[in-house]
Amino acid sequence: MKFEGKMVLNSRREDVWNFISEPSKVIECVPGLEEYSVEEGKRVTAKVKVSIGFIKGTFRASSSVVKEDHQNYTAKLKLSGSGVGSGFDALVDLKLNELEYGTEFIWLADVNVSGPLGSLAKPMLEGYVRKIVDQLFDCIKRKLTNSTI
């Protein structure tokens, strides 16, 4: 399943880049985060609470940087994890474009979900992913504004 989205942030591209290059900063914005640790090579493992409809549970997930290109402000991440009898993986492409008054953040994710969530929740996953991404960006926005002022 492929999802994509765009978001305009009120900060300079360099600031955004620096922020998202810091795994511990981004991870703290993940909704439902219970615990995390950052390992070498920006690999992050975390425990995240999810609730999809009335299904509730904890996912153990990890993310690692596949590619990082500061010059072009692009990056590729791989996420994977498992929980509530299900598993997922996702490849996420990120790109930052410089705007006159800020930065455009473009993302594209290719997500595969297996297990009960895969069988049951496929049609609703898009909405769910959007919700999470929205929350994530809101938080990033907030933190960026706080830190740059």
Partner: peptide, 15 residues
Amino acid sequence: RRTPVADFIKGPVEI
């Protein structure tokens, strides 16, 4: 309150 069954069911495992 009352709501039509059609609206009550919002999606898989979601009411």
